[in-house]
Nucleic acid binder design. Structure first.
Lengths: 174, 174
DNA sequence: CCAAAAGTGTTTTAAATACACCCATGC
DNA sequence: GCATGGGTGTATTTAAAACACTTTTGG
């Protein structure tokens, strides 16, 4: 953080400078201050977490995140300092947040099928969902609007939807 | 925070040094870093919140909290810096936390009546609850144990209960 | 014709809500 | 005897969960 800069501003600047990412969902996670988290100095870090779609462009080659890669969160390697703990806290936050907000909008492109939406939920929640009940719930939620367009593939064309508002909204889902 | 001291440790130390409070529920709230929160310097503060029973002993006379007083949270005076904002964030956190945890144990003495428990919920949630449904829910929750003792007063004696565990537990209540 | 994902309703079950009367005590 | 809070059960409503077959496309 630069003097005169808000914390979230700093987090967004870092993303902007080091990656091509724009307009991602970003939220303060927690401030970690255990003196043992770094053996050489007592460092207090305010962590932020962001939701980045799988298909997002990679960090800039010249940035310190150039070697970044996707990992299955259940098979994370050992990270530096207490960063495994940070990841666990972030995952807990995500898991609880998808149940009472529409935050997954930030993981989906402008248009998507209900099947794609359901997949996101199944991955984050870690279990299968009944397709009929899932569709019923989402169509009743008024979070989505039907686009009248269809995605074609080696199967029946799927109706495309978009989120009505791409901003955080509290709503009881699960 | 002293170098070598964890953040929560520091918050507990502050309480211990300046007040007679012990074993209160304490949790990190948020880290406030807006450069405008203090007009004379850019101060980043990690706030903690605690739940203090109404009947708790007052801060030590010689401490900087000597002038502390209870206020109705809906009629808070204008506080220094961004502390009204901090209070609002804390209230939001409390309101959502009572719905899915047993955190109110920290606002009640070792034994209490179901009526006293219900009062706490009504104050925090800001509305009346049906006594029969409330009792049904709590007795079914297994959070409490009946003490077989009674509180006497100008009314029918009320059975006394205690929390089974005085530690944070996730459970769907409302 | 086969594989793959989409689309669609009803029944069952569980949980939340609404609601009213009697009880035991202190004063 | 009256005011105060304690104690109790049922019926209704609402929401969640369980469940199977048909459709449309690409290859």
């Amino acid at each position: 953080v630069v003097i005169g800069e808000a914390l979230e501003e700093a987090a967004r600047r870092e993303l902007r400078e080091k990656t091509p990412l724009r307009d991602v969902y970003l939220e303060q996670l927690f401030t970690f201050g255990d003196p043992r988290r770094n053996p050489t100095a007592h460092v207090v870090s305010t962590a932020y977490w962001a939701l980045i779609p799988r298909a997002a462009p990679a960090p800039r080659h010249e940035s310190k995140y150039a070697g970044a890669a996707w990992w299955n969160v259940r098979r994370l390697p050992r990270l530096a300092y207490d960063h495994n703990r940070v990841a666990r806290v972030a995952l807990d936050r995500l898991r609880s947040k998808v149940d009472y907000t529409n935050v997954v909008y930030s993981l989906l492109p402008d248009d998507f099928t209900l099947g794609e939406l359901q997949q996101i939920y199944e991955i984050i929640r870690g279990g299968p969902l009944d397709r009929r009940n899932f569709r019923k719930k989402f169509l009743a939620s008024r979070l989505l609007k039907s686009l009248g367009k269809f995605r074609r593939g080696a199967h029946r064309p799927a109706a495309l939807y978009a989120f009505r508002d791409r901003k955080l909204k509290r709503i009881e889902l699960f």
